[in-house]
Amino acid sequence: MEHIVKERIKQVKKGDQSAYREIVELYQNKIYQHCYRMLGNVHEAEDIAQEAFIRAYVNIDSFDERRKFSSWLYRIATNLSIDRIRKRKPDYFLDAEVKGTDGLDMYSQMAASDRTPAEELESNELQRYIHKEISELPPKYRSIIVLRYLEEFSLQEISEILDIPIGTVKTRIHRGREALRKRLRHV
């Protein structure tokens, strides 16, 4: 698979746009899922995942072919997600309770026919709860927890993806695990 990706990237670098389609098809689920886990809602996830692929295409010349493309792509997606979280205004939170209602959040205000598969999944209470807890972690812990336990990267790979020393990755994953333990211990 890595070989095919390398070939396609060479073609894209030469200016062949259509070669990029296969790359998008190959990584779309992973990157979309990653953004969803980072952002906690499907609309922003789609937005940011798309943006990540576009950024990767525009900056393809700065991609070093000796490195793993997927790591690079994950890094772009992670950085964009963190940027989005920082810029986010509190009133955009779909999880936020709607004033004057009792426990109804914005999700419940959306038409039922509008539900995407991801939202259907969320109707599973436990999963929804876990997702919520993950998405409430500070972004720098969240990205590492998501990469390590949901996308199953090694610590070394995470260090490459986020371009931070492995020692820092370890510190953050310890803290992230402890934070989640406290949040999920009563489940």
């Binding site: 689920n29 979309y32 899922q33 499907v42 598969p117 991801a118 436990l126 999963q127 927890i145």
Partner: peptide, 12 residues
Amino acid sequence: ALIQSTEQIAAP
């Protein structure tokens, strides 16, 4: 185990 139990979702 709980984190990992969340299901996979596909891109739209």
